[in-house]
Design a protein around this nucleic acid. Structure first.
Lengths: 330, 330
DNA sequence: AGAGGCATTGCAAACGTTTGTGTAAAGTGC
DNA sequence: GCACTTTACACAAACGTTTGCAATGCCTCT
């Protein structure tokens, strides 16, 4: 149906090889005259290159795939923007696949769609791969790198923030404001990221000489609901003066549930979010946050895959962004 | 490097053709015995199919591409979920491409990446294609369908809500609550969608016998900033008792700016959002909305592309979702 | 004039599949 | 035991490119 280089070759009266060289603009391999003739023929036929065929013979591709864990985590967007920007610089194209939340079957589908095709490399945004899927990925021999997620048990390349520091600095921030009874809401201690954040929180509290009450740590899956449930578990007279939300969404959940319980934020209760995505600015009061540099993570991910041999695990910096949800505890 | 069917063929002592048939599970074309032998060999070699090669010869593909306009519009997620779910049902794989906001160069890049590859069809989520890019798309002969965007000048397939009705019903909702001075904030009248919403608004006001003051309509690009700027333009004593946000984001912008101007929502000012994404539930007060069924749009998009010959323009239903941002005007 | 070099182009193999056609062996019915 | 069908497989072409190699013609130098 669609025009091929053979059609162009016939129309321009040259061989397919020559057409290929002209279209790839391999200077020095064709005369000005035939170059024009071929380009004219291509334009006339509305030629569209079949990249799949080209990739088949060249055995390389300029597509990088980003697999994201779900549409729910809103921090995916700055990462993707970072990936796009850096990929553009390296003349790469980006395709994105959704892998669902905890659905190992959907993960497998996303993974095989990219593995079965010539992609140059794979970036996994915060996707916690089931063991068999990780095996699939490693087996494929395609370079990959995890983003915004880290591991302790297994040895894989990843780029993320230092989650221990995230927990530690969040807690420190509140301690410095004079808070003592500090809750941690909505983190998932089943995985490395959450465990590290809890550990950082514990260490900061320990250094301050504060004994953590067990109910101060409310685990969850970083979601809005998790934040709400955590706050409900704390209740109307929790004794807490500050709460760290395990993610922005969790913090918003805490915020709204706290308001329903009669708390005023930040007067009665300070809330500190972790992530620092745009949602922090949308709610009232705007949530102060320990912010991760997601854009930078995306950039670093592409760079890492373009410069193999680099160290496979990298930490991006975090910083406190003050907005309106924190107050000194008097 | 990677194993091919030829390697399997050699190992299993059969021809590549037979391997292909076994792996494609073409029952009746091979004996139980060779089937086992081939599968064992494939497993041993860690074989991964090269789908690109297969697609080259079969001239068809099971990939559908979704091109989304930017990472900013948060309604993309339910549409994508709808696409994924329905695509799964048809045994299709989905890849997603970002096309930037108003960057025709980035649009072109996204478009060519999919056109140059064997994709079965293309869904464009709310992307307003530059003329030359539309030509590119149409020229490619790949079936496509626009989602959540409509056109009047050009004849292309699209699935969206009835934007005139959106504007009309939003206005009606507020009129029924006794409001008369109603603002419309952040819609973009440069394109069909925005024009229609404005037209619906005008018609409802006309029917109610209300003369619209020019400053009541504050145009913008549906963003949070657009909402904020609109509200700032209205000012602290606008005389308005209700405002329609052109999108959820715009409505949140209106909400926060209104609060800064001293308005209490909904006591002093009712706000009605258009779209009804999750952000409406996250802010306080939760925003009532004219909600679109984005998930359904995604589903319908895939169905439309799987059943060609169907009518190419479809309207998905809208509905009012009441939350906490509306109050009767007394 | 012969040798060598260069510019331009054609030829053909290769990439990893799918699938139509050919064919030998085995099975079936009389 | 013959003709016929079925089963199970091999063979080879094809998909649309890229690219190494060969071939041609022309130019330049000695």
């Amino acid at each position: 149906m669609a025009a091929t280089i053979k059609d162009i070759a016939k129309l321009a009266g040259v061989s397919p090889g020559t057409v290929s060289r002209v279209l790839a603009n391999k200077v020095g391999f064709f005369s000005e005259y035939t170059g024009e003739k071929v380009r004219a023929a291509a334009a006339e036929l509305g030629y569209q290159k079949n990249t799949a065929a080209a990739e088949l013979v060249t055995q390389r591709s300029n597509v990088v795939a980003a697999i994201v864990n779900s549409t729910k985590t809103n921090f995916a967007s700055p990462i993707i923007e970072g990936i796009q920007a850096e990929a553009h610089r390296h003349d790469l194209n980006v395709i994105i696949l959704y892998a669902g939340d905890d659905d190992s079957e959907q993960q497998r589908r996303a993974l095989t769609t990219v593995i079965e095709r010539p992609v140059r490399s794979i970036l996994l945004l915060s996707v916690d791969l089931a063991a068999e899927n990780l095996a699939l990925l490693q087996n494929s021999r395609i370079p990959f790198c995890f983003l915004s997620i880290s591991f302790d048990e297994i040895q894989v390349p990843y780029i993320t923030s230092d989650d221990w520091q995230v927990g530690y600095q969040a807690t420190q921030t509140l301690l410095k404001l004079g808070h003592q009874n500090i809750g941690l809401a909505g983190v998932d201690s089943d995985f490395h990221t959450g465990r590290q954040r809890v550990a950082g929180y514990r260490q900061a509290m320990r250094e301050a000489g504060i004994t953590i009450q067990p109910e101060w740590i409310q685990l969850g899956n970083y979601s809005y609901d998790a934040g709400q449930m955590a706050m409900q578990a704390y209740g109307a007279d929790s004794g807490l003066t500050a709460i760290i939300g395990g993610s922005d969404m969790a913090a918003v959940g805490v915020l709204n549930a706290a308001r329903n319980l009669g708390y005023r934020v930040p007067t009665d209760l300070s809330i500190l979010a972790i992530d620092g995505t745009e949602i922090c600015e949308l709610v009232q009061p705007a949530l102060s946050s320990i912010s991760q540099n997601f854009y930078e993570m995306g950039v670093a991910g592409v760079q890492q895959l373009c410069a193999p041999g680099e160290l496979p695990q990298k930490i991006t910096p975090i910083k406190l962004v003050e907005r309106d949800s924190l107050q000194r505890n008097s």
